[in-house]
Amino acid sequence: MYTLNLDIAQFLKEHWQQKPVVIKGAFPDFEDPISADELAGLACEEEITSRIVVTQKDNWEVIQGPFEDYDSYGETHWQLLVQAVNHWYPDSQPLVEAFRFLPDWRFDDLMVSFATPSGGVGPHVDNYDVFIIQGEGERRWTVGANTPQQRRGGNPNSPLVEDFEPIIDVVLEKGDVLYIPPGYPHCGETLTLALSYSIGYRAPSQQELASEVADYLLDNNLGQQRFTSATEPANPGVISQDHQLGIMSLLSQLAQDPTSYQVVLGKLLSQNRFELDICEGEEAYNAEDLQDAFEQGAGVNRIGGLKVLRLENDTQSRLFINGEIYELPNTPEAVLTQLSDLVSFDSDSAMALCEHAEVQALLLQLINQGLYYLSDDEA
């Protein structure tokens, strides 16, 4: 279990999405949830997103995984990064749980990196919030001010930025945490062999929202209302200000109608950017199988990274899971809250949930889809 040594209320008030901060000793007696060898093993898998960044003189080379071996990279100047480790390595979930004072819909993934001395990814700017937790070893981090940055070498497509004047310059040791909001340039340099953990939080862009709204309207044959006007401009070749505002108000009407935007948000925000480790069994369970398993002490868990969300003041009783809608019209809100807030249930809790026929059917469906699984030990 990981307990974050942090005044959460103060952090949310003074730093979250505002300014970076170093939290020394954030995790006293920190233990790495994964070893370097285990991380390297994950990076061998085709379905897992990984890359190696090689530090060269004033340049960085990126090699995409999977990787069969690492001998050719030597003992310095490279870093292995593996995305969505929480999807594939259950022992990393307790570290994620320490940050669930932030809503699940924002959570992107747990990225883990193994770095050799002088390894790093170069100075860059992220468009998401990130907590960097230092595991074994030491890394030096510099963070600059949230000001416009020049792309490396004047190349607008470069992921790197030019060197910056740091407002933070710190060496992270085991258990230290560095929080960086979007827009702040930062750069990590490895001092000794090191494991680091990056917990990222991402919000949708206007492009993503517009695309999701358009798909929803097309799929459901909605959004047929057209602009009407009471006055016309004197000049035939002009689009009047009244007409401009009136046309665009068609979009704002959608944004103010819960029956339109709640489905869009629920489906969009419950999706994952990275592949999930679906654990679908060879044979489907039935209700009797489920009851027998719980009576024998089995619990039920979500697979790593699965998002189970509900909307406050939803117009309907439902959950949004992995981009899909699950209607539960007869299920009490307290039970929906349990299903969305808890990632695992022991046998007694699972049996209590199954007293609701809809919930039993839902759990059975999710288990047979491979999104939940039965555990031998109680949660």
Rank of each mutant, 00 (worst) to 15 (best):
S35K: 06
K267I: 01
Q365I: 05
G122C: 05
E275N: 12
G122P: 14
L218C: 00
Q291L: 12
I321H: 05
I239P: 03
T116K: 11
N235S: 12
V112H: 08
N221W: 01
S196I: 08
P123A: 12
N322M: 11
L336E: 01
D215Y: 13
E38N: 11
Y197E: 13
I167L: 14
R202L: 09
V263S: 15
G41V: 10
I48C: 09
G154T: 10
L102Y: 05
D108E: 10
V264K: 02
Q206V: 15
D257E: 15
D292S: 13
I247H: 02
F11Q: 14
P66V: 07
G370Y: 08
E189K: 12
L172P: 05
V177Y: 04
L306K: 04
C44V: 03
V213C: 14
N322G: 10
A293L: 13
N146D: 15
L342W: 08
Y89C: 08
D215C: 14
Q134L: 07
G200R: 06
T228Y: 12
A298Q: 15
L311Y: 04
Y70R: 04
K307Y: 11
G223T: 06
Y261G: 09
N86W: 03
T116W: 09
L254N: 04
L81E: 03
W105D: 03
G119E: 10
N235Q: 14
Q56S: 03
L268Y: 12
R318T: 09
S260V: 13
H243F: 08
L319S: 02
E295P: 00
E355H: 08
T49S: 10
Q79W: 12
M111N: 05
C279S: 08
D314Y: 02
H87K: 04
S249A: 14
D109K: 07
V54D: 01
I23C: 10
E208R: 08
D37C: 05
V62D: 02
S344C: 13
E283R: 06
G120P: 10
F114E: 00
K267W: 08
A361R: 13
E14M: 10
H77D: 13
L336Q: 05
I367C: 10
V121N: 00
G246M: 00
T337V: 09
V121W: 11
D37Q: 15
D242V: 12
A287S: 14
V82G: 06
T142K: 12
S72K: 15
V21A: 09
S50D: 07
H77V: 04
Y184A: 02
H186E: 06
I48H: 00
D176L: 09
F320E: 07
M248G: 06
A145P: 01
H356W: 12
R273C: 07
Q17H: 13
G144W: 10
L269P: 08
A203M: 06
V112Q: 00
R273H: 11
V125G: 11
E45R: 14
Q360H: 09
E38S: 11
L4M: 06
L306G: 01
A293G: 03
L319A: 02
Q244A: 15
T55E: 13
D109E: 03
D104W: 02
G175F: 02
A379D: 06
G281I: 03
F99Y: 04
F101P: 03
A334I: 04
Q316H: 10
L254E: 14
V143D: 02
V121E: 09
L217V: 13
P123H: 08
T142D: 06
N235P: 04
P33H: 11
G223N: 11
